[in-house]
């Protein structure tokens, strides 16, 4: 009976919900971003939704954004990189130590190549030797933290940093900080690489199923290495810009970035591509964290409550998207089962 009209619309109870909910889930984080924005705008209409404040939000998130972009690449191929914040801190201290001794571009390229080196070490131990990336990057971050604190003795390095370098972190073009332009550039490059090039397909293939990726001719080890190198370079770049913004190399400057970067990536994984890390989602996650922090500061919420709210929102957002996913799957499966049951009865 049912075979006579195979393409008839499903009229089961959950058919419509199952079709709407995935969309709600995919754009849920964007909707909540707007709600958050609206909420702060209503609470502080004179301060929050102004051009000046929006620019300052963008400036505040630019460093986190660059760091999270690199981390996203690692997470796409399924590697945890716990060392990104330690690389950023180390690079900030190194650039402050190198700048008085050589030209600016020389110092920057040395520090960036250190980032490449650390990324290669991470990649070598996890992809070539085969240790879990979690352990490797945990060990590397412990070592870098120790080296940073040992090298600086716990003090900031601020002598002999040229004005031209500080201007990178503080200057503006058309009243928009340079940092924001750099972040936008990084996102355009990474977006093109992951969504418009075969490289991106390879990344997702390795992350989805390494064995299948190997059988289809992708050099899995090389992809892992490249992912760690990208993550390392962007972390080093973040450290350089951090030093430019603070006009000093501080041995604890990057510590808070690690958790926020992971939070941004995981928040982003709930948007656009179903349950997968993606660069646009990460940008939304970074914006979310930036607006949340900025709004809470403007509302005068004490810093310890900011921690509590951040943690709670992080878990709630991810739980909500996960719940929607499992809910939809369950409902779809149930409606299919009901239909099949109906078919059998008809036969």
């Amino acid at each position: 009976m049912s075979s006579s009209k195979p393409f008839a619309p499903r009229t089961t109870r959950w058919g419509l919900t199952a079709r709407i909910l995935p969309g709600a889930r995919r754009y849920g984080i964007i909707v909540s971003l707007f709600l958050l924005f609206l909420c702060f705008s209503i609470l502080r209409p004179g301060i929050f939704p102004t051009i000046g404040n929006l620019i300052s939000i963008l400036k505040q998130i630019s460093l986190l954004g660059i760091l999270s972009a690199g981390l996203t690449i690692c997470l796409v191929v399924g590697d945890f990189d716990l060392s990104v914040a330690a690389i950023a801190t180390w690079s900030g201290v190194m650039i402050a130590a190198l700048l008085p001794q050589m030209s600016m571009w020389m110092a920057i390229s040395i520090v960036l190549s250190m980032g490449v080196g650390i990324g290669l070490v991470n990649g070598f131990f996890s992809a070539v030797v085969g240790i879990s990336p979690f352990i490797v990057t945990l060990a590397i971050q412990t070592m870098l933290r120790g080296l940073t604190l040992w090298y600086t003795g716990g003090y900031s390095l601020y002598l002999g940093i040229p004005q031209a370098f500080i201007r990178i972190g503080r200057g503006t073009f058309l009243s928009m900080p340079y940092l924001v332009y750099i972040m936008v550039l990084v996102y355009i490059v990474i977006y093109t690489a992951t969504n418009r090039m075969s490289f991106g397909k390879k990344l997702y293939a390795v992350g989805g199923n390494p064995t299948a990726a190997r059988y289809s001719g992708i050099r899995v080890v090389r992809i892992h290495l490249i992912a760690f190198v990208i993550s390392g370079v962007l972390a080093a770049g973040t450290g350089i810009l951090l030093a430019a913004r603070l006009s000093s190399g501080q041995p604890r400057a990057g510590e808070g970035l690690l958790l926020n970067a992971f939070a941004a990536c995981f928040l982003g994984a709930t948007a656009f591509r179903a349950g997968r890390f993606n660069i646009l989602g990460t940008l939304i996650g970074v914006l979310f964290i930036g607006i949340l922090n900025n709004g809470l500061v403007i509302l005068g919420v004490p810093f310890y409550l900011q921690y509590v709210i951040q943690g709670a929102i992080l878990v709630l957002a991810i739980a909500a998207s996960g719940l929607a996913r499992s809910g939809v799957r369950g409902k779809v499966r149930q409606s299919e089962r009901e239909e099949r049951q109906g078919d059998i009865e008809e036969v």
Partner: peptide, 9 residues
């Protein structure tokens, strides 16, 4: 991770 942030606060 979220729990850690909440508890630190």
């Amino acid at each position: 991770l979220g729990m850690m942030t909440v508890l630190t606060g």
